[in-house]
Design a protein around this nucleic acid. Structure first.
Lengths: 230, 230
DNA sequence: GTCTATACGGAGATAGAC
DNA sequence: GTCTATCTCCGTATAGAC
């Protein structure tokens, strides 16, 4: 299901001096298609990988440039600072995952169907794009105050999508929850955390993870069979 | 639900020369009672706060020493490196949360009761000790390979406790799950993630969060009322 | 055990040639 | 747009006095 076109174009650099391992090195490069010119995109992809592996503060600009096959100085032609790289990554990643979530939430069917679709898609994205997702979810605090505020706004919108779905299901009488906001947050927690533990080649595919989490989300909102607990 | 005794004892330290803000600055200092001498403990507590705020790599030894009211050099009397501080924090934190989880899981009652108690206690700890928990959960990658391996072993034991509980409930016919391991991991994800978003003074107390997550955990394992989804 | 002073290396960012 | 060379600052860790 994972549309994986492109692969690596332009990987015909003279010396084959890839210093970094990685089968999934270029998994999801499509996500960065919009970034131009090519050198800027290569730097961005290199930064995503480095930030995901070591974290923003432990990553050096030399490392990023090296992964992109450029000199340290080349980075500053395309980005004013290291933080600007993080900002771009965070921005694109948040927009992409929000858009995915919205599309699923706006699909066909009742609240259960759409909630399952939304959580499934969101969870799956965090597995498929675990490299990007790790940066997006766990390096926020390295953003400048302005950029941080901008990203937080996107996150609130993400939360609202799920919360609205849960509330809609409650109004429709399909769901029964103790606290819609907290339930929605819990569903997002589940999905986000995939970026922390997921490793390619693990025992489940991204699609299976999404499906499994969709099932868990429904269990969270459908009144349990057993009673006498409240 | 969520049997909770103790609360914080021993919050009566004499001198009050705290340079840093924070209402919750000393929330859970009890956890570090075992660390001696006093200067070493103050440094450790300062490190927990700094690492939680900025992350390990963004924290300077000068900052840690400053928060503890000491000169930069004083740190190296008590710890060989900055990483050793992280290791101690991670070790104590993992041991504490594992112990908590085990106690709850070994309590009275059937699988449902004990699962609810375990998830409740674990979730509550991540809220109450959110500062420590943030370091414990999100700074692992800064550990040395040896220390990392040691901590991973503790984490596996934590996962096993919850997984065993879920499997026990399935065998007893109380639970119905698609995948016990994945379900247990999801419960842990929920609890861990509390450390990421929790802020003191938010709309729910740590105890309420624990109770809410205990309820969600039960929903995850009790077969849903509605059918026709698989 | 704690301080002041400092060695040493490395990181972000720039200058100026090509 | 990219490179080589470099500036400048700052962070970890140590030396040696008290």
């Amino acid at each position: 299901m994972a549309a994986q076109a492109s692969g690596r174009t332009g990987e015909t650099r003279p010396g084959g001096e890839e210093p970094v391992a990685a089968e999934d090195r270029h998994a999801g490069c499509d996500s960065w298609r919009s970034v131009a010119p090519d050198a800027a995109r290569r730097l961005l992809i290199a930064a995503v990988e480095a930030f995901a592996e070591r974290g923003f503060h432990a990553t050096t600009t030399r490392d990023i440039a090296g992964r992109a096959g450029m000199s340290p100085a080349a980075l500053y032609i395309h980005y004013k600072t290291k933080e600007e790289l993080l900002h771009r990554i965070s921005q694109v990643g948040h927009e992409r995952s929000l858009s995915l979530l919205r599309d699923a939430a706006a699909g066909r069917g009742g609240p259960s169907d759409r909630l399952a679709a939304a959580v499934g898609a969101f969870g799956r994205w965090h597995a498929e794009q675990h490299t990007t997702a790790r940066v997006v979810q766990y390096e926020l605090s390295a953003l400048s105050p302005d950029h941080y505020a901008e990203i937080v706004a996107l996150r609130r919108r993400t939360e609202a999508v799920v919360r609205d779905l849960v509330e809609e299901g409650v109004r429709a009488g399909e769901f029964e929850v103790l606290d819609a906001r907290a339930t929605a947050l819990a569903m997002l927690s589940l999905c986000l955390d995939v970026a922390r533990w997921y490793r390619p080649g693990g025992r489940r595919t991204p699609e299976e993870i999404g499906d499994f989490y969709a099932d868990l989300a429904l269990r969270m909102v459908l009144a349990p069979r057993a009673t006498g607990r409240h």
